[in-house]
Amino acid sequence: MTETSRERPGEGLTVALFATCISDTMFPKTPQATVEVLERMGCRVVFPREQTCCGQIFTNTGYFDDAIPSVRTYVKAFGDYDYIVGPSGSCVGSVREQHPMLAERSKDAGLQRAATAVASRTLDVSEFIVDVLGVTDVGAYFPHRVTYHPTCHSMRVTKVGDRPYQLLKAVRGLELLELPEATQCCGFGGTFSLKNPDVSVSMAADKARNAASTGAEYLVAGDNACLMNIGGMLSRQKSAMTPIHLVEILAHTEGKRR
């Protein structure tokens, strides 16, 4: 057995789950899968229920003042935890890169200190598994052809690097197909998709076409918003490809599916 398949590397660690508002509301299977994987690794997972949202919908639309309540809520919900883990490169990236700026704007020195500290303890689930738990094989089994879309914010804001690929490569039965023009944006961009719908759709169509060209059964990513965008295009194009969050693949084990 290699070192990376150590059974329960999370023993003794408490992880606060940052479900993200979009997954909490629209894609509950993703945070559920996060809980399953982390518990399987031996972690104790808690869900601070005061949590709401990272606030980036407001921040990225230019409404900084309206994002500040989200920062306060985030600090209140997660202030006491050493590890805060979320299944979204984008929401985690927003917490890490935008909360300090927003807190500064609030002119509340206490919030500023707290937000900066909490932000630095917030990790994407792929970072937590690979860096903190020190494993890439989480005992998953997923006998399917998949292709992976590295979402822009996971790649360029949160900078998860090749961790998702490492995790996918360790999944038994999984065949990973290369996505052409992988690093090109899917065109979602939050309110961009509403403010510039024509450009957004054209970008999503490119992404969906590239994904379909791989012949994969599943399109994997670490952000449900992007998956919803590309998935919406695939569904409209009557494609058989299914969007799925990375962590849902990691939660899937042989012979035991919830």
Partner: peptide
């Protein structure tokens, strides 16, 4: 502007909180 060109899944009947 979204649904004209892309499908949106129904919100599930149970949130993660539930």
């Amino acid at each position: 502007k979204w649904t004209n060109t892309r499908d949106v899944p129904n919100p599930p009947t149970k949130t993660f909180r539930d």
